[in-house]
Design a protein around this nucleic acid. Sequence first.
DNA 1: GACTTAATATACATAATGTTCATTAGTTTA
DNA 2: TAAACTAATGAACATTATGTATATTAAGTC
Lengths: 210, 210
Amino acid sequence: MSKKAKVDPRIKRTNKYLRNALVELLKDKDVTSITIQEITEKAELTRGTFYLHYQDKQDFLMQSMNEVLEELIEQVKPKQNDENSAAVEEKDESVSFLKLFEFIYEHASYFKVMLSDRGLPQFRSHMTEIVKKRVYGELISSIGEAEDGLDIPKDILISYITSAHIGVICSWLESDMKFSPAFMADKLTSLTLLGPIRVAGLENKIKLPY
Amino acid sequence: MSKKAKVDPRIKRTNKYLRNALVELLKDKDVTSITIQEITEKAELTRGTFYLHYQDKQDFLMQSMNEVLEELIEQVKPKQNDENSAAVEEKDESVSFLKLFEFIYEHASYFKVMLSDRGLPQFRSHMTEIVKKRVYGELISSIGEAEDGLDIPKDILISYITSAHIGVICSWLESDMKFSPAFMADKLTSLTLLGPIRVAGLENKIKLPY
DNA sequence: GACTTAATATACATAATGTTCATTAGTTTA
DNA sequence: TAAACTAATGAACATTATGTATATTAAGTC
């Protein structure tokens, strides 16, 4: 089951051009007001060529999104010893915050526009799902075990954690990655473990507005 | 400076019909694929009437959004003793989590679609700004004072808190508000104060994947 | 070099947009 | 209540983007 399906280089080229054109256009205007015309023009291709590969704009956007996010999943996935499938149960299946920040760092301009409100709305929710499953999957399972004693609904807790995670990523991207991936991963760990108030050192100084 | 500007009842009616039509359509399809044609049809108005009030679809969407969110700001704002402007400095300017949950509860169907990925992307970012300024404004100021000792960048911290907050709201809406606003406000307070791990009672059981 | 397939150029039907204007109907106010 | 105002309608029209079809050219494969 080889992965390489020998795809025509012209197709690769066309897809790349279309994808790049999209990202360029997203820097100026939001995805809603970008037309297929504009995309193909910027990509220096015919509009007909677009329809040779995609049904419509939505189809194109979703496919591009899925390609990038599947790559992200690959990167973030813990390496498996494929040769010795018995060793898979090994231990430490944990997926790191760090890997995620590193991948995003490498594709920053794409993530920045797609997570902004100019980008595809589905991108944010898709990424949130990925963070949920791939980054916090293990943590979530262990919540399941202790569930009875939990005085907070599990899905609220999970939404809290994952949304906060995505929010931190957005803020980092908007600052044009002022800090290193390692720094970010470290801070996010503190926030998750201690909570935002204690991290800020405000536990005695503040009363919350509830 | 009276607030009531005596707006023609026909205009009010038209706006209401258009707004309702939008929300209805958003239950079935995403905002991108909804046309002005469809909106006016569902509202049982002429397309010409639409252009009498709005420049284009985006204009309409933004205005509707702003109206609802300005109402939210009003609700969430601490009551001022307008008659005695000296008493404004009083104390406890705090804006409650509770008020926010209560307002959203009242307008649940609107918030649910608008915060989903079928809605206006700008809605989420606008709401995030409101939560930042109106709900955590005071908290953020006090961070400012203690800023020197802070070992985490302020904007990351703020993004963490506000994104988590919005995330919890979305999860609540998606569950069709299984819990009361008061319950939600209470849980969110715990999460902010203690952090998600301690709230889940996992502080000893888990190692984070960093 | 022959075969295959992607990209082009072009044309066309369809649908939504945004504008205009004369007419009808509902509100305000003198 | 009649006159004056203005919102909504209906209809027409130019423009733009969409999606499809087809014959031709160019690039990649075997």
